[in-house]
Amino acid sequence: MLHNPEDYPDPEEFKPERFIKDGKLDPNVRDPLTLAFGFGRRICPGRHLSSGSLFMMVASVLHTLDIHPVTGNNGEKFDPSSEVITGLISAPERVPCTLTARSTNAERLIQQSSPC
């Protein structure tokens, strides 16, 4: 259902921008969460835990790290791979980027939370 071309044009393409219009979430695009966790009597009981965990993970990365695109010797930027890994979660195969700690405090937070 999340690959319906009427709801999501080019459903096999990784296009996160399809949900944004004029810098804001486009209310005319169906929210994938209405289908992703099921519905009715068979809705996933862990959907709120999953959404909250994902939010916290993304917020932690954005709080502690600067994310920059990788540039070549001539200064050209490398675009994310158009190849997509499919399965339980779809994602681009490669997203060339560099991650750097935003500060010494952020670096300390990263090191303290690391399982290694």
Score class of each variant (00 low, 15 high):
5 P>T: 10
5 P>R: 10
5 P>V: 11
5 P>H: 11
6 E>D: 15
7 D>S: 12
7 D>L: 15
7 D>W: 14
8 Y>Q: 05
8 Y>R: 05
8 Y>D: 02
8 Y>M: 01
8 Y>K: 02
9 P>W: 13
9 P>T: 14
9 P>Y: 13
10 D>N: 15
10 D>G: 05
10 D>S: 14
10 D>L: 12
11 P>H: 08
11 P>A: 08
11 P>R: 06
11 P>L: 09
11 P>I: 12
12 E>S: 12
12 E>P: 01
12 E>G: 04
12 E>L: 12
13 E>W: 07
13 E>R: 15
13 E>T: 14
13 E>G: 00
13 E>M: 10
14 F>G: 09
15 K>P: 00
16 P>L: 08
16 P>T: 06
16 P>Q: 10
16 P>A: 09
16 P>E: 06
17 E>P: 02
18 R>E: 03
18 R>I: 07
18 R>G: 03
18 R>V: 08
18 R>H: 01
18 R>N: 04
19 F>Y: 15
19 F>W: 14
19 F>P: 03
19 F>Q: 12
19 F>R: 11
20 I>K: 06
20 I>E: 04
20 I>W: 06
21 K>H: 11
21 K>L: 14
21 K>F: 03
21 K>S: 13
21 K>A: 14
21 K>G: 00
21 K>V: 10
22 D>Q: 14
22 D>M: 07
22 D>H: 12
22 D>K: 11
22 D>E: 15
22 D>C: 06
23 G>N: 04
24 K>T: 12
24 K>E: 15
24 K>Y: 14
24 K>S: 13
24 K>Q: 15
24 K>R: 15
24 K>L: 13
25 L>A: 09
25 L>M: 12
25 L>C: 03
26 D>N: 15
26 D>H: 03
26 D>V: 02
26 D>K: 04
26 D>E: 04
26 D>R: 07
26 D>T: 01
27 P>K: 08
27 P>C: 07
27 P>A: 08
28 N>M: 07
28 N>K: 14
29 V>F: 00
29 V>M: 00
30 R>I: 03
30 R>Q: 07
30 R>T: 09
30 R>W: 00
30 R>S: 01
31 D>H: 11
31 D>W: 06
31 D>L: 00
31 D>T: 05
31 D>R: 06
32 P>S: 10
32 P>W: 11
34 T>H: 04
34 T>M: 08
35 L>R: 06
35 L>K: 09
35 L>F: 07
35 L>D: 14
35 L>I: 07
35 L>C: 05
36 A>M: 10
36 A>F: 00
36 A>Y: 04
36 A>W: 02
36 A>R: 05
36 A>C: 01
36 A>Q: 05
37 F>H: 00
37 F>E: 00
37 F>A: 00
37 F>K: 05
38 G>R: 01
38 G>A: 04
38 G>Q: 03
38 G>P: 00
39 F>G: 08
39 F>K: 07
39 F>A: 08
39 F>I: 10
39 F>T: 13
39 F>H: 08
39 F>R: 09
40 G>R: 10
40 G>I: 08
40 G>V: 10
40 G>W: 04
40 G>Y: 02
40 G>Q: 05
40 G>F: 03
41 R>P: 09
41 R>V: 13
41 R>L: 12
41 R>Q: 11
41 R>A: 15
41 R>I: 12
41 R>H: 05
42 R>G: 02
42 R>M: 01
42 R>F: 00
42 R>V: 03
42 R>Y: 00
42 R>I: 02
